[in-house]
């Protein structure tokens, strides 16, 4: 009942169900859990995250996120649910015609915060990811690693209930990676944010207890 995410015999597939990526996966994730997800390239890590934010409907089985059954969620409910999620994409998905500052506060804009609040928050968030001096630039003027940090700042903007991160440190050096891990640890520890992170490398310095899922041969297994 305190499960934020609950999957039961979950099967995910592309191409109208013909191409199965994940089959019969079952797992529960509680509020405040920190979960690392690893697995070979092409195993379905991004696909699993996609299903969690409702971009891919389950082919079979049950998937409940934030109390909503994602197989039968209405567009309105999905929209509402998504405002409680902080999503970090493998390919950043920044809005290129907006400044970095505006990109970062997208969730606040959607929530209807005033421009004043948006501006102060943009400043605070960019400071956290060490990008203060880039506020007025456009995403394409930044390096890959910098863009990725903009994506992280955006995901954290509204203190989401769940963070779904796809390779958030994929393009970062050790120093920047540690900045990101610190931010996520803090969110998890202080706000009881549930965090799911897809990564190919679990950080060596990590102070919180965490869980580790491996995706392999269409299955999702937890490592104990």
């Amino acid at each position: 009942m305190s499960n934020v995410i609950s999957a039961k015999n979950l099967t995910l597939a592309y191409d109208n169900g013909r191409k199965e990526i994940i089959k019969n996966a079952s797992f529960n994730i509680k509020k405040g859990d920190f979960v690392f997800i690893t697995g070979p390239s092409g195993s379905g890590k991004s696909t699993l995250l996609k299903s969690l934010y409702g971009q891919l409907k389950p082919k079979e089985g049950n998937l409940v996120v934030g109390g909503r059954d994602l197989a039968n969620i209405s567009p309105r409910q999905l929209q509402e649910l998504r405002t409680h999620m902080g999503i970090i994409f493998q390919d950043y998905k920044l809005i290129n015609e907006w400044t970095v500052a505006k990109n970062v506060v997208l969730p606040l804009m959607i929530a209807g915060y005033s421009l004043d609040v948006q501006e102060t928050q943009a400043h605070r968030l960019l400071k956290h990811v060490k990008l203060s001096e880039h506020a007025d630039k456009y995403p394409l003027e930044l390096s890959g690693g910098e863009q990725q940090r903009v994506g992280v700042a955006r995901a954290l903007a509204k203190n989401p209930v769940v963070i779904l991160a796809d390779e958030p440190t994929g393009n970062l050096d050790d120093y920047s990676s540690n900045v990101i891990w610190d931010l996520m640890e803090n969110a998890c520890q202080q706000l009881e944010t549930t965090v799911l992170v897809v990564t190919h490398k679990i950080p060596t310095i990590f102070s919180l207890p965490y869980r580790h899922f491996i995706i392999e041969s269409k299955g999702v297994y937890e490592v104990h």
Binding site: I95, M109, I110
Partner: peptide, 16 residues
């Protein structure tokens, strides 16, 4: 399209 998709994933209502 891309901007609209990103906004949709972050839960922006249609009007926005």
């Amino acid at each position: 399209r891309e901007r609209m998709q990103v906004m949709e994933i972050f839960g922006a209502p249609l009007m926005l």
